[in-house]
């Protein structure tokens, strides 16, 4: 690997544990390991997709990357600077360059504020004067396709698709370099989903944004991403190019996930890998490999040892004993 290569965003051994129970002395005794030792990097202008089922830690990872949550341990490099080491003021300055797009655009807007006020707010926070603000907002709502005469309306007067356009405009108002989108289309109807996905792609093309795109829907992730990371119970289990992930998924969970997605193609062969059982509780994950309880290929070693995060091919990382053994 090239030593001079510095990715735009680099995450090293990131962990976030949430306390869930206290013992009789009031000390935290039990934790949910929401994100447990995750490492990856994102290049400038790239879209990394994070996919996984509920409780896999993908949303927490997104919030950690923007430092909306403080990591329990690990480091987080953004444009060469470790966010975990920055002062409050420096972090606030950096916050301008990284923004979040929320799943539920209605809940992310203050119901008592007009769209106009909500759009002005982030710019005001960083001290932009009124004229610059108004100009920025005008360009933005043009770009996302909201007519400017709607600016004086309140959130409840818009449809879900329009609100998500406004949400996107608001997140982009500060001209960020990096955007985390947490299930931005999950709450939308299918005919609207495509509008938003295309809009996000067009904006990325125009302004060279770097995206972390989070979704439970592998087909949406596949459409949006250059590379895809698959998460399961707080761990990343596979990370590779989107083509490689679709054509030769290595981890058994990725394979099962791909096969479980209902495809709008009735004639398709219906040889599915049906996973048995359900996702275990993240408070008491299984020993060794977290996936072993549902894995059709689980061996004795899977219960004893956590699989290592290994680069099997160039840029294709997997954490699985079975795959790694077969490869040797």
């Amino acid at each position: 690997m090239n030593r001079d290569y510095k990715p735009f965003i680099r995450v090293d051994h990131l962990k976030k544990y949430f306390p869930v129970a206290k013992n009789w002395r009031g000390k935290n005794s039990q934790y949910v390991k929401a994100v447990d030792d995750v490492s990856f990097s994102i290049d400038k202008g790239e879209t990394l997709g994070l996919v996984g089922e509920s409780g896999c830690g993908k949303s927490t990872t997104g919030r950690l990357l923007l430092h909306l949550l403080t990591p329990t341990s690990g480091s987080l490099f953004f444009d060469g600077q470790d966010l975990t080491q920055l002062s409050k003021q420096a972090l606030w300055q950096k916050r301008r360059e990284m923004q979040f797009i929320f799943q539920d655009p209605y809940a992310a807007l203050n119901p008592r504020m007009t769209i106009q006020d909500s759009l002005h707010e982030p710019l005001k926070a960083y001290g932009e004067d009124k004229r610059t603000r108004s100009e920025t907002i005008k360009t933005l709502i043009d770009a996302v396709g909201i007519p400017s005469q709607y600016l004086n309306r309140y959130p409840h007067e818009f449809s879900g698709g329009q609100l998500q356009r406004i949400g996107i405009a608001r997140s982009l108002a500060l001209k960020p370099k990096f955007v985390v989108a947490d299930e931005p289309v999950a709450a939308l109807d299918m005919s609207i989903q495509a509008q938003i996905l295309n809009l996000m792609k067009e904006l990325q093309h125009a302004f060279n944004y770097t995206y972390l795109f989070i979704s439970h829907d592998l087909s949406v992730i596949d459409y949006m991403s250059d590379r895809i990371g698959v998460m399961y119970l707080g761990k990343m289990v596979e990370l590779t190019d989107r083509d490689a992930l679709y054509q030769e998924p290595l981890h058994p969970y990725t394979q099962a996930l791909l096969s479980a997605i209902p495809i709008a193609e009735p004639q398709r062969s219906k040889n599915k890998i049906m996973l048995k059982g359900e996702i275990p509780s993240p408070v008491h994950p299984p020993s060794g490999c977290h996936f072993r309880t549902r894995c059709p290929f689980a061996k004795a070693i899977c219960a004893e040892k956590e699989p290592e995060w290994v680069e099997m091919k160039k840029g294709h990382y997997v954490a699985c004993h079975v795959v790694q053994e077969a490869h040797q």
């Binding site: 916050r95 923004q99 809940a107 807007l109 926070a125 608001r170 997140s171």
Partner: peptide, 10 residues
Amino acid sequence: LYIEAAYSMG
């Protein structure tokens, strides 16, 4: 969420 959103925007 809108409190978190405002915070995330500085």
